[in-house]
Design a protein around this nucleic acid. Structure first.
Lengths: 216, 216
DNA sequence: AGCTTACTCGTACGGTGTACGATCCGGGCA
DNA sequence: TGCCCGGATCGTACACCGTACGAGTAAGCT
């Protein structure tokens, strides 16, 4: 049932995940669901925990840095596979078992890697904020590959110019010159690759964390 | 009207911001709203742009680093004042004028600060991911001050132990030792201060960006 | 006076989550 | 065998949601 719900959210979007719709998918009446789940909130909780379960736990057979790197990349992939989950994490307050396991493993990886408790908390906070924040950005964008991104960037830019009644593209560029430079002048030409952008920022953060760890 | 909507979301939560409820608040019929806004989506768009408008633009009279630092802190404060907005940014796709102005100013600040276009994009992406990700974490937590956090951490931990049927607190600590160490052993004792945690991570990122800028 | 334009809103429709109570079914026990 | 009981199923109903439609009002212009 949770799997079916996930598949439905994946395939048709979270907004069309209805109790009735889900019940249909399962060949059951809507009210039947309430025998397995107290309400829709808990259903969503369960779905979120499935996503957590898909994230690679950091292993102990490599150094903390590569373990954290892998876990971060795995997190982005999971959140990208299930974009509906990103908007959901926010509201969920009670973590499921998979979430707890992951939390514990990440904290353990850092502690065993030689981080103090205080630094561990900070390192965890920075990494997670970055991961979820990046997923959030990525989610709200309607393209996947770098080539697509260029086309979309140009089109959106043009569309916005039309939308702004009186203005022409030129005037818009005049009001927001730096935006124009970056979006129309760069992204629209060479595109934007989310995966490599993510890893760039990730390595930047891991570098900084390593330095903090060594000088403490 | 947008202001009333913001106030309502602020005061009673986003989920109780209903077209009818908002209309009541304004002393009007529900359908009247639709003469000022095409649909609820656009209403939310407008509300989000109000939040963007409350974020301090980076100024040009200081170096890029302090300008970015201020803007980041201002962003966190705005998102914290309007927690409802965090979950909303995701779904909104067409940016409003305040959002555009902010985007443009941030990009401009970095460009004038000596970042190449590529680095500017990366720097922007890392910072924003961190800011929104942090706000996301912060939002889903029901306390504000460090002292509160300690109490809540302990209570939640205990509560979860009860929830996990057979288990006792001890067994839970056995299964998730690192989590126990950090949550029960540290946070519950000394508390957790979001504002300073945010600034720690922020400075960490700004450090790293500065280094990347100077060695490119 | 008549027309236009901007604004207000009552009613209604199709959707949502879910409370309640009726129904079915399979298995232990007298 | 007959009985009952607990879990699983679900039809119906309710309150609430966003909003389409069209009727009503009032002010300003020709």
């Amino acid at each position: 049932m949770l799997e079916t719900a996930v598949a439905l959210a994946q395939g048709e979007g979270l907004e069309s995940l209805t109790m009735r719709r889900l019940a249909d998918e399962l060949g059951a009446g809507a009210m039947t669901l309430y025998h397995y789940v107290p309400n829709k909130e808990k259903l969503l909780d369960g779905m979120v925990d499935i996503v957590f379960g898909e994230i690679e736990l950091p292993t102990t057979d490599v150094d903390w840095r590569t373990a954290m790197r892998r876990r971060a990349i795995s997190s982005r992939e999971a959140l990208n596979r299930h974009r509906w989950a990103v908007g959901l994490m926010e509201s969920r307050t009670t973590p499921g078992p998979a979430s707890l396991r992951l939390h514990n493993a990440v904290l353990g990886c850092l502690r065993e890697g030689g981080f103090s408790i205080e630094l561990t908390i900070q390192a965890y906070s920075v990494q997670d904020a970055y991961i979820y924040g990046f997923a959030l950005q990525e989610k709200s964008v309607p393209f996947e590959t770098a080539e697509e991104s260029a086309a979309v960037a140009e089109e959106q830019y043009r569309e916005y110019a039309e939308l702004a009644d009186e203005r022409q593209l030129g005037e818009l560029a005049e009001e927001f010159p730096y935006l124009a430079e970056v979006v129309a002048g760069h992204v629209a030409k060479v595109g934007y690759n989310f995966a490599s952008a993510f890893e760039y920022g990730l390595d930047l953060i891991l570098d900084a964390l390593e330095r903090r760890r060594d000088t403490s």
